[in-house]
Design a protein around this nucleic acid. Sequence first.
DNA 1: TCGATGGATTTGTACCAACGAATGGATGAT
DNA 2: ATCATCCATTCGTTGGTACAAATCCATCGA
Lengths: 251, 251
Amino acid sequence: MKVARSALYQQVASELRRAIYSGDYGPGAQLPTEEELRQRHGVSRNTVRLAVAELVNEGLVTRAPRRGTIVRERRALLMHPQRELETQPTGEPREAFAFAVSQEGREPSQDIEVVTILPTEDIASRLELGDGDLALVRRRLRYVDGQPYNTNDSYYPAHLVRDSEIARPGDITRGANRVLEELGHAQVRVVDDIWARMPNQTEVDRLQLELGTPVVVYVRVGYDRDDTPVRVAVSVLPADKHLIRYELDIR
Amino acid sequence: MKVARSALYQQVASELRRAIYSGDYGPGAQLPTEEELRQRHGVSRNTVRLAVAELVNEGLVTRAPRRGTIVRERRALLMHPQRELETQPTGEPREAFAFAVSQEGREPSQDIEVVTILPTEDIASRLELGDGDLALVRRRLRYVDGQPYNTNDSYYPAHLVRDSEIARPGDITRGANRVLEELGHAQVRVVDDIWARMPNQTEVDRLQLELGTPVVVYVRVGYDRDDTPVRVAVSVLPADKHLIRYELDIR
DNA sequence: TCGATGGATTTGTACCAACGAATGGATGAT
DNA sequence: ATCATCCATTCGTTGGTACAAATCCATCGA
C-alpha cells in the first residue's frame, strides 16, 4: 500500500520538524544519529541526510562530526536605527552599537579598517559620485562577547572627510555623525533600505555563519542640509541574531 | 597532485558561482546539465547535485526536470511602511499595498479571510490581551499580477472591532486604519519589528516560494491615544521580492 | 593529578546504479 | 495549420558502499 504523497526524505524531515517544534528536542538537544534515524524510518542514510539537510537549510539545526545534529538556539539583539541619530546624552562616551550591546550586559568590540577606494556602481550612485570620484570606507567587523556579530561598512565621499578623524582608523567614541557635523555636513535626513538574502561565502567566513542563516542587509544613506549624500552605511546582519525596531509617531 | 583545499562539490559550486556573478550565465540562462557538468569536472553526478544544491540554497538558481538549472532573476517591490500611516490623499480609493503595486504598473489583488481566534502567546502579549480574550484576525494573501506575493495577518482585540466593518470579509478600500479611527481608536503610534528567517512549509506552499528564499517578517503594533494596542499586523515578505524603506528626518 | 594517546563514534565526502516525474520538442493525425 | 500524442532529455528520489575527518572519551603514563 502506498500512502506517500511526498518524497521519503520530506516525510522524515517533517517528522523531525514536528518533534523540534513540539519541544521533544529543545534548543541544544541532539537529534538521533543518522544511523538511528535510518533504522527507525527504514530508509537509507542518503535519505536521512537529505532530510536533515532540509532542517539545516532552514536554520533549525547544526551538524558536526561526532557532536551529532544539534537543535540551534537563538537570541536576537535589538537594534534601534533611530537612536543612532539622536544626539547622545551629554557625556555618553559610547557609539550607538556599543551602547546597545552593553545595555544587554554583553561586551562589544570591533575591528576597523579604513581604505580609500573606487566605489562600486551601487555605492557611487547612492553617494551621487561622478566617474572616478573616490570614496573612503570604514569597514567594521563587530563582535559581541568575542563572537563576530555583524559588519558595518560606512562610505563617505573621499574629498569630504580626507583630513578628518574619520579617515584615521580607530574608534570615534563621539560617533562619526558628530565629526560630520563638525565638518559642516551634519546628516539631517536619512533613508534606510532593508532587505534580506542568503549570505555569500565572504560573509559566511567573516561572520562565521552557520548554514541556513539568512542575512538582513541594512543600508542607510545620510543627507546633509543641502540634500547631498554624505554617508552610506551598509550593515550585514545575521538574521538569527538581529531584530530591527522602528517607532513611529503619527503626526 | 592534490590541490584541493576544499571539498570537490565546493569547488564546483565556486566555479558556477563565479560564472554566474561574472555574467557568463545571466538571469534566465540555463546552466550546463548535470551530465555535462559531471563530464566537465570529472566528478560523479551526486557531487554535481551537491554543488548545485548549494546555489539553490543561496537562492541563486532554480531547478526543474527537463527545464534544467536556471539562473533566477529578481525584481523587488519597494515598500514604504511609513506611508501606510499617512492620511491618504482625498479621494484615494485604494489601500496602501494596492496603491504601491499599481504605482509600478502591476496588478494587485488579495484573498481575505476573517476569523475570531484564541491568539497565540506572542500575539496576545503584543495586544496586551488577558487569558481567554479573543482576537479577530484578517488574514490576507496578496497577489501581484496573479502571483502570490506576501501575506498580511492583522489581529485586533475581538471586543473592539466585533461589530465594525473590520469583522466582515472583503476589501476595506478606505483602509482599516480609517475604521479604527471611526471607532475612536485611531493609531497614533506604531512600533515596527523587522527580522528574517527561512520560511516554514506552510509559507513555502502559500507563497509558492522557491528553495533558498528567506522571508522578512515584519510586525507592526499600533497603539491608540491611550497607548492601548489596537492592532498587530504580521507580514511575511519573500526576501527576493521586497525592499523596505524608511525615511527619517532628524528633528 | 594531569596530560597525552588512541580507539570508537558520528558526520562529511564521494562514487555508482536504477528508476520516477516532468516537460520540451518532434511527430503524426485531422 | 492545428492539435494530440509520444519520445528523449533532464532533474528527482532512493538505495547502496567506502573511506575521511573530527571529536568525545576512556585508558595509560608521567
